[in-house]
């Protein structure tokens, strides 16, 4: 189990109803974590249309989770 800090932007923030939260997760990878959160919050976007960053660095979806990671999911936005 890993305790991770999550930050949400744009549609994800709206759908989660919060900009950040801390979760204890059994998910091994970022992809698993997102699927777990998606089921919980009902996120409309799939992982393929998002970018993920851990500890302020963009990274691949198969990266393994570590205790204390700060994870940010970022959808592209187009408003102007």
């Amino acid at each position: 189990m890993a305790l991770v800090n999550l930050q949400y932007y744009a549609q994800l923030r709206e759908q989660a109803g919060t900009g950040s939260e801390q979760v204890l997760t059994g998910a091994a990878s970022l992809r698993d974590l997102y699927e777990e959160l998606r089921a919980r919050h009902g996120f409309s976007l799939d992982a393929a249309s998002l970018k993920v960053a851990v500890n302020t660095q963009f990274c691949a979806w198969d990266r393994l989770l570590r205790d204390g990671d700060t994870v940010v999911f970022i959808p592209p936005v187009a408003g102007g």
């Binding site: 549609q11 709206e14 970018k51 408003g79």
Partner: peptide
């Protein structure tokens, strides 16, 4: 490099659909 393919219009939101406060842009 970040998002290789243009996402669908429904996925990205807009000022019309999602709302925005003026000072943000």
């Amino acid at each position: 490099c970040l998002w290789p393919q243009e996402p669908s219009p429904e996925a990205v939101g807009s000022c019309v659909l999602s709302g925005v406060l003026g000072p943000v842009p």
